[in-house]
Amino acid sequence: MFELNLSDWQILLVKLGLVLAIVPAITLVAGYAEHKVMAHLQHRLGPMYPGGFHGWATLLADGLKFIYKEDIIPAAADRKVFSLAPLAIFVPTVLTVLVLPLDETLVVEELDLGLFYLLAVSSISTIGMLMAGWSSSNKYALIGALRAAAQLIAYELPIVLSAAVAAMLAGTLSLNGIVEAQEWPFVLWPPGIGLIAFLVFFGAGVAELTRPPFDMPVAESEIITGAFTEYSGMRFIFSTFFPEVANMVIISGVATTLFLGGYQPIVPLGFLDAVPGLVWFTLKTAFMVFMLLWIRPTFPRLREDQLQKFAWKFLIPTSLVLILAAGAWVLYAPEGLK
C-alpha cells in the first residue's frame, strides 16, 4: 500500500468524500437494476433508449429532468420543515454506510458498537417522514406520514430483536466482529435460529423500506405518495427514490453482514478463500437485492391493520422467542457445535 502522512481529520474527510461519491453511484446501479429486473419480471424491456445500450443512462437522464423541474412548496406548508424533511431522510441513509464492512479492512469507520450505531441512525428517517407529512398541509400526506410512523416504529422492533440474535450469537456488537464470528454464516448455523432470525430481519426490512408488500405509507393507488404527495423536483428524488433504493442496498448489506457471513465465503471451504471478500459481499448483497426486486412486482400490498398485526402478533413474538433460543444456544450448546 502507499504511505501518506495525513492527520486523522484529513483521512476522515477523504473517507467521507468517498462515501458521498460511492453511495449515489451504488444507488444508480441498483436503481437501474430495479428498472430492468422489474421490467423483465413483468415481460417488458424497461428503459432502452437513454445512453444507447439498454438504456443504461436512464437514471442520469431522470436525475437531470428532476433538477430542471420546478421546486414547488405549497403556500400553506411549513416551509422550513418542508424543506428540511428530505435531508432528515437522506442523511441517515448515507450515515449507515459508514460502518458496513465491505471487506476485512474495507470499512470507513470500524466501531465497536457498530450494530448499535447502525440501528440508531437508520431509525432517524421516521422523523423525516413525519416532518414531510405534517408540514405539507395535505390530508393524504398526513395519513401517509402517520402510516409511515406507525409502520416504521412497529418494524423497528423486529429488526432490532433479530439483529440482537446475531449479536448474541457472535458475542459482539462490532459488525466486523459479527462477520468474523460467522465461519459458517448464521443462516446455516446454528440450525433454525439463524435462518428464522434472518427471515424475520428480511421481512421487517422490507417493511422498513416501505416497499411492496408493505408500502402503505406511499401506497400510490390509495394515498398518492403519502408523505411526499406535495414534493416535486429534486426534493422528491431525495425523499423518495434515492433513500428507497439506497436503503434497499443497505438493508441487503446489513442482512448480508449479520446473517450471510458478510465478506466471508458462503461456506468455509479452503479454495473459496481465493475469492476476495469484496466480491463475496457484493454477490451476497446483489442476491438480497434481487430478492427484494423480485418480491416487489409480485405481491399486492397488505392493509394497514394487517401490517400492524403482522408485526406485533407475529414478528415480534417470533423474534423474542429467537432471542431466548439464541441465549440458550450460546449458553448451553456443546462447544463442538458452535
Binding site: 413483468q42 415481460h43 412486482p297 409480485t298 399486492p300 400490498r301
Partner: peptide
C-alpha cells in the same frame, strides 16, 4: 384491480 391492491405486474401481463 390488481394494480389498486398494489400488485403492478398483472397490468403488463
Amino acid at each position: 384491480f390488481a394494480a389498486e391492491l398494489g400488485a403492478i405486474t398483472p397490468t403488463f401481463y
